[in-house]
Simulated assay, not measured.
Amino acid sequence: VKVRGFRVELDEIQAQLASLSGVAQAAVECLPKGELGQQLFAFLTLAPGHSLTVAQLHGQAQDRLPDYMLPNLRIVEALPLMGNGKLDRKTLQQWADKVLDSVGGALPRTPLEALLAEVWAQVLGLERVGIEDDFFALGGHSLAAVSLASR
């Protein structure tokens, strides 16, 4: 698939993520997300006895993948499977939508923070963002940053 002008192999990303320390399984999806274009999403299950955070996994992934191949990472209990044992890609697409709808932890404290959060949400196509959210972790990229700067 093409993501921001780069040709990427989802299987290659998935293999790199599955080989990260503490990861049992990985599934990668590429989905269109409005103004941002195609976005990569990865859903990871942890190996028994491991308790890693998304930030820790993201750090490991940065060492193995170029920036344009880094997906939005989410840790899940188990990957969704259909009755025949194959990966349920429709459920992954629904989860990707929920990932972007569930962001926005700490609320803005000042009028300036509220304005910036509103502009970020518009550019990223989200309902809301929190003041501690990471623009790039939410799917932002250099072209979206230009749009952000112009607003």
Rank of each mutant, 00 (worst) to 15 (best):
Leu65Gly: 11
Ala55Gly: 02
Gly130Tyr: 03
Ala145Pro: 05
Gly59Gln: 08
Leu92Ser: 08
Pro66Val: 06
Pro71Ile: 14
Glu113Pro: 02
Asp134Thr: 07
Ala121Leu: 05
His141Ile: 15
Asp97Lys: 04
Ala144Phe: 13
Gln62Gly: 01
Trp95Pro: 04
Ser51Gly: 09
Ile75Cys: 07
Gln122Thr: 14
Lys86Tyr: 02
Pro66Leu: 06
Arg64Ala: 01
Val54Cys: 01
Lys98Thr: 14
Val119His: 07
Arg89Asn: 10
Leu116Pro: 02
Ile131Met: 06
Gln62Asn: 06
Ala117Gly: 11
Lys98Val: 15
Lys98Gly: 13
Lys98Ser: 15
Asn72Pro: 07
Lys98Cys: 15
Lys98Trp: 15
Arg89Met: 12
Pro80Arg: 00
Gln56Ser: 07
Leu107Val: 13
Ala137Met: 13
Ala121Gln: 03
Leu92Trp: 05
Gly140Ser: 09
Thr110Val: 05
Ala106Met: 04
Gln56Lys: 00
Leu70Ala: 07
Gly59Asp: 12
Val129Met: 02
Gly59Trp: 08
Ser142Gln: 13
Gln122Cys: 05
Lys90Met: 08
Ala121Arg: 02
Lys86His: 10
Lys90Asp: 10
Phe135Pro: 01
Val123Pro: 00
Leu124Trp: 13
Phe136Trp: 14
Leu70Ile: 04
Ala55Cys: 01
Ile75Gln: 04
Ser102Leu: 12
Gln94Arg: 02
Pro108Asp: 11
Met82Lys: 10
Leu143Ser: 12
Ala114Phe: 07
Ile75Met: 11
Leu126Met: 05
Arg109Asn: 05
Asp134Cys: 14
Pro111Gln: 05
Leu112Glu: 06
Pro111Lys: 12
Gly105Glu: 11
His50Ala: 15
Ala78Ile: 14
Asp63Ala: 06
Ala61Pro: 03
Ala61Gly: 00
Glu127Pro: 09
Leu112Ala: 14
Ala78Trp: 11
Gly105Cys: 08
Leu143Asp: 07
His58Ala: 04
Pro80Glu: 09
Gln56Arg: 00
Gly125Gln: 08
Glu118Thr: 06
Arg128Trp: 02
Leu92Asn: 05
Lys90Pro: 00
Asn84Ile: 14
Pro66Glu: 01
Leu143Tyr: 09
Arg128Gly: 05
Asp133Ser: 12
Leu143Trp: 08
Leu126Arg: 12
Pro108Cys: 08
Ser102Arg: 03
Met69Gly: 08
Glu132Gln: 11
Asp97Asn: 09
Gly140Met: 11
Arg64Gln: 03
Glu77Lys: 13
Ser51Phe: 09
Gly130Arg: 01
Asp67Tyr: 10
His50Arg: 03
Val99Pro: 07
Leu126Glu: 01
Gly140Asp: 03
Asp97Ser: 08
Gln60Asn: 00
Ala78Cys: 09
Gly104Ser: 05
Asn72Arg: 13
Gln122Met: 10
Leu65Asn: 05
Ala55Trp: 03
Asp101Thr: 12
